[in-house]
């Protein structure tokens, strides 16, 4: 059964004029978000994107933009409390759920 999350929230953007169709994004995406169409990568289903940032990081042509972040409520709460960027850093004694 497919797990689905909120619609129309992901910050993923593809600048197709920069895409060379190398297919790296298809390779690294863990959720099968991209599709190769007319030798360019296109976004097939943006709602599957979890903003891990693998595609943007591995695009040698800067054709992909996404605000990389952790989809972890505990990290976001800790970020609010400590005034820092939320990150996947469950320290030993604070419990929490990530990793």
């Amino acid at each position: 059964m497919q797990n689905l999350y909120l619609k129309n929230v992901a910050t993923l953007k593809m600048k197709s004029e920069l895409c060379t169709g190398c297919g790296k994004c298809l390779e690294v995406c863990p959720h099968n978000v991209f599709l190769m169409k007319d030798s360019k990568a296109v976004i097939l289903d943006k709602d599957r994107c979890m903003e891990c940032g693998a595609c943007a990081k591995n695009c040698a042509f800067n054709a992909i933009e996404v605000k990389q972040g952790v989809g972890c409520a505990f990290a976001i709460i800790m970020g609010w409390l400590t005034g820092s960027e939320p990150n996947c850093d469950c320290s030993g004694n604070s419990g929490g759920s990530c990793c």
Binding site: Y5, V9, E51, K67, G71, C72, A73, S97, C99
Partner: peptide, 15 residues
Amino acid sequence: MNFTGSSTFTSFSGV
């Protein structure tokens, strides 16, 4: 809600 961190498909924007 905290389980979002253990899931494999939630995005920062969504959470």
